[in-house]
Protein backbone atom coordinates (compact mmCIF):
# COMPACT_ATOMS: atom_id res chain seq x y z
CA UNK A 1 0.00 0.00 0.00
CA UNK A 2 2.73 2.50 1.01
CA UNK A 3 4.79 1.40 -1.98
CA UNK A 4 1.80 1.92 -4.21
CA UNK A 5 1.27 5.46 -2.95
CA UNK A 6 4.94 6.33 -3.37
CA UNK A 7 4.90 5.05 -6.94
CA UNK A 8 1.75 6.98 -7.73
CA UNK A 9 3.18 10.20 -6.28
CA UNK A 10 6.40 9.79 -8.26
CA UNK A 11 4.36 9.28 -11.41
CA UNK A 12 2.90 12.74 -10.93
CA UNK A 13 6.19 14.38 -11.93
CA UNK A 14 6.25 13.33 -15.59
CA UNK A 15 2.54 14.14 -15.87
CA UNK A 16 3.15 17.68 -14.70
CA UNK A 17 6.12 18.08 -17.03
CA UNK A 18 4.08 17.00 -20.03
CA UNK A 19 1.26 19.34 -19.05
CA UNK A 20 3.75 22.17 -18.69
CA UNK A 21 5.29 21.47 -22.09
CA UNK A 22 1.92 21.37 -23.81
CA UNK A 23 0.84 24.63 -22.24
CA UNK A 24 4.17 26.24 -23.06
CA UNK A 25 3.86 25.23 -26.69
CA UNK A 26 0.25 26.36 -26.97
CA UNK A 27 1.05 29.75 -25.54
CA UNK A 28 4.02 30.39 -27.73
CA UNK A 29 2.36 29.18 -30.87
CA UNK A 30 -0.66 31.47 -30.47
CA UNK A 31 -0.26 35.07 -31.53
CA UNK A 32 0.04 37.87 -28.99
CA UNK A 33 3.00 39.64 -27.47
CA UNK A 34 3.18 40.30 -23.73
CA UNK A 35 5.62 43.17 -24.22
CA UNK A 36 3.07 44.90 -26.41
CA UNK A 37 0.34 44.25 -23.87
CA UNK A 38 2.42 45.58 -20.99
CA UNK A 39 3.40 48.75 -22.79
CA UNK A 40 0.04 49.39 -24.39
CA UNK A 41 -0.88 50.29 -27.97
CA UNK A 42 0.93 53.64 -27.87
CA UNK A 43 4.37 52.12 -27.28
CA UNK A 44 7.06 52.66 -29.88
CA UNK A 45 8.46 49.56 -31.62
CA UNK A 46 11.86 50.35 -30.14
CA UNK A 47 10.60 50.21 -26.56
CA UNK A 48 8.76 46.97 -27.26
CA UNK A 49 11.98 45.53 -28.62
CA UNK A 50 13.90 46.46 -25.46
CA UNK A 51 11.28 44.92 -23.21
CA UNK A 52 11.17 41.77 -25.34
CA UNK A 53 14.89 41.45 -24.82
CA UNK A 54 14.57 41.99 -21.06
CA UNK A 55 11.90 39.31 -20.82
CA UNK A 56 13.93 36.90 -22.93
CA UNK A 57 11.22 36.78 -25.55
CA UNK A 58 13.63 37.54 -28.40
CA UNK A 59 15.39 34.20 -27.89
CA UNK A 60 14.54 31.34 -30.26
CA UNK A 61 11.64 29.24 -29.01
CA UNK A 62 13.70 26.13 -28.31
CA UNK A 63 16.06 28.17 -26.17
CA UNK A 64 13.21 29.73 -24.18
CA UNK A 65 11.82 26.28 -23.72
CA UNK A 66 15.05 24.78 -22.45
CA UNK A 67 15.51 27.67 -20.03
CA UNK A 68 12.01 27.13 -18.76
CA UNK A 69 12.47 23.38 -18.32
CA UNK A 70 15.74 23.96 -16.53
CA UNK A 71 14.09 26.40 -14.13
CA UNK A 72 11.13 24.14 -13.54
CA UNK A 73 13.43 21.26 -12.69
CA UNK A 74 15.03 23.45 -10.03
CA UNK A 75 11.58 24.21 -8.67
CA UNK A 76 11.52 27.70 -10.11
CA UNK A 77 8.37 28.35 -12.14
CA UNK A 78 9.54 31.82 -13.05
CA UNK A 79 8.25 35.28 -12.36
CA UNK A 80 5.04 36.92 -13.44
CA UNK A 81 5.54 39.28 -16.32
CA UNK A 82 3.26 41.79 -14.65
CA UNK A 83 3.37 41.58 -10.89
CA UNK A 84 7.08 41.20 -10.23
CA UNK A 85 6.15 38.22 -8.06
CA UNK A 86 7.15 34.61 -8.35
CA UNK A 87 4.64 32.44 -10.18
CA UNK A 88 4.38 30.14 -7.18
CA UNK A 89 3.35 33.05 -4.99
CA UNK A 90 0.95 34.45 -7.57
CA UNK A 91 -0.82 31.10 -7.85
CA UNK A 92 -0.62 30.36 -4.12
CA UNK A 93 -2.56 33.46 -3.06
CA UNK A 94 -5.36 32.36 -5.40
CA UNK A 95 -5.67 28.90 -3.88
CA UNK A 96 -7.43 30.11 -0.73
CA UNK A 97 -10.50 31.59 -2.48
CA UNK A 98 -10.71 28.68 -4.91
CA UNK A 99 -10.41 26.08 -2.16
CA UNK A 100 -13.03 27.87 -0.07
CA UNK A 101 -15.44 28.02 -2.97
CA UNK A 102 -14.73 24.45 -4.03
CA UNK A 103 -15.03 23.07 -0.50
CA UNK A 104 -18.32 24.78 0.13
CA UNK A 105 -19.71 23.86 -3.29
CA UNK A 106 -18.62 20.26 -2.72
CA UNK A 107 -20.37 20.05 0.64
CA UNK A 108 -23.50 21.66 -0.83
CA UNK A 109 -23.55 19.27 -3.77
CA UNK A 110 -23.31 16.21 -1.52
CA UNK A 111 -25.92 17.59 0.85
CA UNK A 112 -28.27 18.08 -2.10
CA UNK A 113 -27.37 14.95 -4.07
CA UNK A 114 -27.29 12.19 -1.49
CA UNK A 115 -30.65 12.77 0.23
CA UNK A 116 -32.46 13.42 -3.04
CA UNK A 117 -31.03 10.27 -4.63
CA UNK A 118 -31.97 8.23 -1.55
CA UNK A 119 -35.45 9.69 -1.63
CA UNK A 120 -35.83 8.91 -5.33
CA UNK A 121 -34.73 5.32 -4.77
CA UNK A 122 -36.87 4.89 -1.68
CA UNK A 123 -39.94 6.14 -3.56
CA UNK A 124 -39.00 4.38 -6.79
CA UNK A 125 -41.92 3.78 -9.08
CA UNK A 126 -43.79 6.76 -7.66
CA UNK A 127 -44.24 10.22 -9.13
CA UNK A 128 -41.15 11.34 -7.24
CA UNK A 129 -38.85 9.52 -9.59
CA UNK A 130 -39.69 11.45 -12.80
CA UNK A 131 -39.58 14.65 -10.75
CA UNK A 132 -36.14 13.69 -9.52
CA UNK A 133 -34.98 12.79 -13.02
CA UNK A 134 -36.06 16.09 -14.54
CA UNK A 135 -34.63 17.95 -11.55
CA UNK A 136 -31.23 16.38 -11.98
CA UNK A 137 -31.30 16.97 -15.72
CA UNK A 138 -32.21 20.60 -15.12
CA UNK A 139 -29.38 20.94 -12.59
CA UNK A 140 -26.85 19.48 -14.98
CA UNK A 141 -27.91 21.46 -18.02
CA UNK A 142 -28.66 24.84 -16.51
CA UNK A 143 -25.88 27.22 -17.64
CA UNK A 144 -23.78 28.39 -14.70
CA UNK A 145 -23.57 32.00 -15.74
CA UNK A 146 -27.30 32.24 -16.25
CA UNK A 147 -28.14 30.82 -12.84
CA UNK A 148 -25.45 33.04 -11.35
CA UNK A 149 -26.86 36.20 -12.92
CA UNK A 150 -30.41 35.28 -11.93
CA UNK A 151 -29.35 34.75 -8.32
CA UNK A 152 -27.32 37.93 -8.23
CA UNK A 153 -30.20 39.99 -9.53
CA UNK A 154 -32.66 38.39 -7.11
CA UNK A 155 -30.75 37.89 -3.84
CA UNK A 156 -28.05 40.47 -4.41
CA UNK A 157 -29.77 43.35 -6.13
CA UNK A 158 -33.52 43.06 -5.57
CA UNK A 159 -33.67 41.59 -2.09
CA UNK A 160 -30.24 42.73 -1.00
CA UNK A 161 -29.76 39.65 1.19
CA UNK A 162 -26.34 38.69 -0.08
CA UNK A 163 -23.30 40.55 -1.40
CA UNK A 164 -23.36 40.79 -5.16
CA UNK A 165 -19.78 39.71 -5.67
CA UNK A 166 -16.30 39.60 -4.19
CA UNK A 167 -14.51 37.51 -1.64
CA UNK A 168 -13.61 37.90 2.02
CA UNK A 169 -11.00 35.58 3.49
CA UNK A 170 -12.02 33.27 6.30
CA UNK A 171 -9.85 35.04 8.89
CA UNK A 172 -11.86 38.23 8.47
CA UNK A 173 -15.00 36.57 9.77
CA UNK A 174 -16.80 33.35 9.02
CA UNK A 175 -20.07 35.14 8.43
CA UNK A 176 -18.67 37.44 5.79
CA UNK A 177 -16.72 34.63 4.17
CA UNK A 178 -19.80 32.47 4.04
CA UNK A 179 -22.19 35.15 2.79
CA UNK A 180 -19.87 36.00 -0.09
CA UNK A 181 -19.49 32.38 -1.09
CA UNK A 182 -23.07 31.25 -0.60
CA UNK A 183 -24.35 32.12 -4.07
CA UNK A 184 -21.33 31.03 -6.13
CA UNK A 185 -21.03 27.79 -4.16
CA UNK A 186 -24.71 27.08 -4.67
CA UNK A 187 -24.46 27.76 -8.40
CA UNK A 188 -21.57 25.31 -8.68
CA UNK A 189 -23.22 22.76 -6.40
CA UNK A 190 -26.44 22.57 -8.42
CA UNK A 191 -24.59 21.30 -11.45
CA UNK A 192 -22.43 18.79 -9.58
CA UNK A 193 -25.38 17.63 -7.50
CA UNK A 194 -27.29 16.78 -10.65
CA UNK A 195 -24.49 14.52 -11.82
CA UNK A 196 -23.78 12.89 -8.47
CA UNK A 197 -27.42 12.29 -7.59
CA UNK A 198 -28.14 10.71 -10.95
CA UNK A 199 -25.15 8.40 -10.64
CA UNK A 200 -26.05 7.40 -7.10
CA UNK A 201 -29.67 6.74 -7.98
CA UNK A 202 -28.78 4.61 -11.00
CA UNK A 203 -26.16 2.77 -8.98
CA UNK A 204 -28.57 1.99 -6.19
CA UNK A 205 -31.35 0.83 -8.49
CA UNK A 206 -28.80 -1.42 -10.12
CA UNK A 207 -27.59 -2.82 -6.81
CA UNK A 208 -31.16 -3.44 -5.66
CA UNK A 209 -31.44 -6.18 -8.29
CA UNK A 210 -28.46 -8.05 -6.92
CA UNK A 211 -28.88 -11.39 -5.21
CA UNK A 212 -27.32 -10.17 -1.98
CA UNK A 213 -30.10 -7.63 -1.56
CA UNK A 214 -32.59 -10.50 -1.70
CA UNK A 215 -30.47 -12.32 0.87
CA UNK A 216 -30.56 -9.27 3.13
CA UNK A 217 -34.33 -9.09 2.84
CA UNK A 218 -34.63 -12.82 3.47
CA UNK A 219 -32.84 -12.47 6.79
CA UNK A 220 -35.27 -9.80 7.91
CA UNK A 221 -33.58 -6.54 6.94
CA UNK A 222 -36.16 -3.78 6.54
CA UNK A 223 -36.28 -1.37 3.63
CA UNK A 224 -34.28 1.28 5.47
CA UNK A 225 -31.43 -1.07 6.30
CA UNK A 226 -31.46 -2.50 2.79
CA UNK A 227 -31.25 0.94 1.21
CA UNK A 228 -28.95 2.76 3.60
CA UNK A 229 -26.58 -0.04 4.47
CA UNK A 230 -26.51 -2.67 1.74
CA UNK A 231 -27.44 -0.74 -1.39
CA UNK A 232 -25.96 2.65 -0.56
CA UNK A 233 -22.55 1.34 0.41
CA UNK A 234 -22.31 -0.67 -2.79
CA UNK A 235 -23.61 2.09 -5.03
CA UNK A 236 -21.12 4.49 -3.49
CA UNK A 237 -18.27 2.68 -5.24
CA UNK A 238 -19.16 3.79 -8.80
CA UNK A 239 -20.45 7.14 -7.51
CA UNK A 240 -17.11 7.99 -5.94
CA UNK A 241 -15.62 8.37 -9.41
CA UNK A 242 -18.12 11.07 -10.29
CA UNK A 243 -17.74 12.71 -6.89
CA UNK A 244 -13.96 12.79 -7.35
CA UNK A 245 -14.09 14.24 -10.85
CA UNK A 246 -16.48 16.85 -9.56
CA UNK A 247 -14.19 17.75 -6.66
CA UNK A 248 -11.17 17.97 -8.95
CA UNK A 249 -13.11 20.22 -11.32
CA UNK A 250 -14.12 22.52 -8.50
CA UNK A 251 -10.63 22.70 -7.01
CA UNK A 252 -9.15 23.36 -10.42
CA UNK A 253 -10.99 26.62 -10.46
CA UNK A 254 -14.51 27.24 -11.64
CA UNK A 255 -13.64 29.78 -14.28
CA UNK A 256 -17.05 31.16 -15.21
CA UNK A 257 -18.38 31.30 -11.69
CA UNK A 258 -15.24 32.93 -10.31
CA UNK A 259 -15.36 35.57 -13.02
CA UNK A 260 -19.07 36.31 -12.63
CA UNK A 261 -18.79 36.65 -8.84
CA UNK A 262 -15.37 38.35 -8.99
CA UNK A 263 -13.75 35.77 -6.75
CA UNK A 264 -9.95 36.09 -6.95
CA UNK A 265 -9.34 32.37 -7.41
CA UNK A 266 -7.28 30.19 -9.72
CA UNK A 267 -9.93 30.22 -12.45
CA UNK A 268 -9.95 33.98 -12.48
CA UNK A 269 -6.15 34.01 -12.56
CA UNK A 270 -6.12 31.77 -15.61
CA UNK A 271 -8.48 34.10 -17.46
CA UNK A 272 -6.44 37.16 -16.51
CA UNK A 273 -3.14 35.62 -17.47
CA UNK A 274 -4.49 34.59 -20.85
CA UNK A 275 -5.78 38.10 -21.48
CA UNK A 276 -2.50 39.68 -20.47
CA UNK A 277 -0.27 37.03 -22.04
CA UNK A 278 1.38 36.39 -18.70
CA UNK A 279 2.93 33.13 -19.91
CA UNK A 280 4.72 32.00 -16.77
CA UNK A 281 1.67 32.53 -14.58
CA UNK A 282 -0.63 30.79 -17.02
CA UNK A 283 1.68 27.80 -17.23
CA UNK A 284 2.03 27.66 -13.47
CA UNK A 285 -1.73 27.92 -12.93
CA UNK A 286 -2.50 25.18 -15.42
CA UNK A 287 0.13 22.96 -13.83
CA UNK A 288 -1.53 23.57 -10.48
CA UNK A 289 -4.87 22.45 -11.93
CA UNK A 290 -3.20 19.35 -13.34
CA UNK A 291 -1.64 18.61 -9.96
CA UNK A 292 -5.03 18.87 -8.29
CA UNK A 293 -6.55 16.45 -10.80
CA UNK A 294 -3.79 13.91 -10.34
CA UNK A 295 -3.88 14.11 -6.55
CA UNK A 296 -7.67 13.86 -6.35
CA UNK A 297 -7.54 10.85 -8.64
CA UNK A 298 -5.00 9.21 -6.38
CA UNK A 299 -7.25 9.96 -3.44
CA UNK A 300 -10.18 8.33 -5.20
CA UNK A 301 -8.21 5.23 -6.04
CA UNK A 302 -7.23 4.94 -2.40
CA UNK A 303 -10.84 5.47 -1.40
CA UNK A 304 -11.85 2.55 -3.61
CA UNK A 305 -9.70 0.19 -1.59
CA UNK A 306 -11.41 1.42 1.56
CA UNK A 307 -14.91 1.07 0.12
CA UNK A 308 -14.39 -2.18 -1.75
CA UNK A 309 -12.48 -5.00 -0.07
CA UNK A 310 -12.00 -6.67 -3.45
CA UNK A 311 -9.71 -3.83 -4.52
CA UNK A 312 -6.18 -4.31 -3.24
CA UNK A 313 -3.15 -2.21 -4.16
CA UNK A 314 0.35 -3.56 -3.88
Amino acid sequence: MIGYIVRRVLAIIPVLLVVGIVVFMLIHLTPGDPAQVILGDAATPARVKVLRHQLGLDQPLWKQFLTWVEHVCRGNLGTSLFYQQSVVHTVAVRVGPTASLAGLAFVFSLVIAIPSALLAVWKRGSLLDPIFMSGSLLGVSMPNFWLALMMISLFGVKLGWLPVSGYVPLDQGVGLWFSHLLMPAFVLAIQQAGLIARMLRDGMLDVLHQDYIRTARAKGAGERLVLLHHAFRNALIPTVTVIGTSLAGLLGGAVVTEVVFAIPGVGNLIVQSIASRDFPVLTGAVMFVALVYVLVNLLIDLLYSVLDPRVQYR
Binding site: Y212, T215, R310
Partner: peptide, 15 residues
Protein backbone atom coordinates in the same frame (compact mmCIF):
# COMPACT_ATOMS: atom_id res chain seq x y z
CA UNK B 1 -35.27 -18.59 6.64
CA UNK B 2 -34.20 -18.98 3.09
CA UNK B 3 -31.11 -20.15 1.28
CA UNK B 4 -30.69 -19.34 -2.38
CA UNK B 5 -29.15 -21.11 -5.31
CA UNK B 6 -26.18 -18.86 -6.10
CA UNK B 7 -23.61 -18.80 -3.30
CA UNK B 8 -21.29 -16.64 -5.40
CA UNK B 9 -23.66 -13.68 -5.47
CA UNK B 10 -25.82 -14.26 -2.40
CA UNK B 11 -23.44 -12.47 -0.04
CA UNK B 12 -22.78 -8.76 0.00
CA UNK B 13 -19.24 -8.34 -1.39
CA UNK B 14 -18.26 -5.38 0.78
CA UNK B 15 -19.07 -6.70 4.23
Amino acid sequence: SMVFQEPMTALNPIF
